[in-house]
Design a protein around this nucleic acid. Structure first.
Length: 144
DNA sequence: TTTCTGACA
DNA sequence: TGTCAGAA
């Protein structure tokens, strides 16, 4: 039987392929830079053979995007790549945690309430994430 | 037309 | 890194 909520239930983002021209348009990184970064081993394109046009997976596209953000923050290319890699490692952990802990989101008049479920095994307290006026906070409530 | 590699006022 | 050339 098929699992409805596994990773498989979503689009395999690595099957979304982008040409170097598209990557340039989306990330603003020049083709010259992309080839140089690849030459330096910072990024990789899908099976780059001889003079064939480069293709990038969506994962790589995201990676490139993150590198540019760190470059904009003033980091060197090497440092930006390192930070992007670190960020890359955090994503699956964050996704797993959120996927298992997120119970639902309630949209109220002045705020949004994220239900993270019970805090304790006894189910005496429930924790919520509050998003209000552009700010976030936690709230723990006792369960009746 | 787009991309590739190599080179450099 | 940009840019130009010559080829695919």
């Amino acid at each position: 039987m098929a699992e409805l909520h596994g990773n498989d239930a979503f689009i395999d983002t690595d099957k979304l392929i982008f040409g170097i021209g598209q990557v340039q348009q989306i990330t603003g990184v020049s083709g010259r830079q992309l080839r140089y970064w690849e030459e330096q081993g910072y990024i990789k394109s899908i099976s780059q053979k001889k003079g064939a046009a480069r293709e990038y997976s969506m994962h790589t596209l995201f990676f490139i995007f993150h590198v540019t953000r760190f470059l904009d923050d003033g980091f060197t290319l090497q440092a930006a790549v390192d930070k992007a890699k670190k960020f890359d490692r955090q994503l699956p952990v964050l996704r797993q945690f959120l996927r298992s802990q997120l119970k639902g989101v309630d949209f109220q008049d002045d705020q949004s309430v994220i239900d993270f479920g019970y805090v304790d095994a006894e189910h005496k307290q429930r924790i919520y994430g509050i998003v209000k006026n552009g700010e976030t906070s936690f709230k723990i409530e006792n369960v009746d």
